[in-house]
Design a protein around this nucleic acid. Structure first.
Length: 219
DNA sequence: AACTCGGGGCA
DNA sequence: TGCCCAGAGTT
């Protein structure tokens, strides 16, 4: 695994590569953040960002989502993938918020995960960004990049990746790092054809070095 | 661990 | 066209 200096270099490089990394997390209040993150499952930010302004204009509280027929909510988020199950989840989640959490977004990871359509990743993002709780969200990009670079061990489970990153990255950088690693994973360190030749981190990347050696052998 | 859900993006 | 995808829930 990488040492402290190498990790620092990685974080700084992510920053240099993607200074303007922005995503759906620019939503202000916890409720909108929660809905946006739930919608973003298996969908791109761009798509979610197209829908949410109008959505948040119409639906401001959990009660608002409960007051319309399921079909109407489905229509309102129709452009996002999995919209049928997502619409159902949103109404279920609002029901739970009203019944068990006084109509508010719960603040702990455990309570968040108890909501319909909210898994570990969503719970972590909301807890961290909306409520400043110690959490780091590990999605497929973060996991892949972490393993390739050596920010964690290759055989780590998602939970272990999360724990390792929390240990190695300063808490006040969790959120930013998360975003930049996603950009890095999406556009550079791609699952299929990673752009190793143009990668500023190649010299310390375990996976990149391995690929390089393999190529040299072939040549 | 494998499977389902399902529209949009991209080659 | 056909493949992949910032996930969650069920079995």
């Amino acid at each position: 695994m990488l040492n402290k200096t190498q990790i620092r270099y990685c974080l700084d490089t992510f920053w240099e590569m993607y200074p303007d990394a922005e995503c759906e997390l620019t939503h202000k209040n916890p409720f909108e953040l929660l809905i946006a993150v739930v919608l973003s499952a298996q969908a791109t930010d761009a798509l979610v960002n197209k829908v949410t302004p109008g959505l948040f204009e119409k639906y401001k509280t959990p009660e608002d989502y409960m007051d319309v027929p399921l079909e109407e909510l489905e229509q309102d988020i129709r452009r996002i993938g999995l919209y049928r199950s997502k619409a159902k989840n949103i109404q279920k989640l609002c029901r739970t918020m009203i019944d068990r959490f006084d109509g508010k977004v719960p603040e702990t990871k455990e309570e968040l995960e108890s909501l319909a359509g909210v898994g570990r990743k969503t719970a972590n993002v909301v807890a961290s960004v909306a409520f400043n709780q110690p959490a780091i969200a590990v999605d497929t990009h973060v996991e892949r990049v972490s393993k390739r670079l050596g920010l964690c061990r290759y055989k780590d489970s998602v939970k272990e990746v999360e724990r390792t990153l929390m240990k190695k990255i300063p808490e006040d950088e969790w959120s930013d790092t998360h975003h930049r690693m996603i950009f890095f994973g999406r556009y550079h360190c791609k699952a299929k054809n990673p752009n190793c030749p143009d990668c500023p981190l190649l010299f310390l990347c375990r996976e990149g070095q391995k690929r390089k050696r393999k190529e040299e052998k072939m040549a």
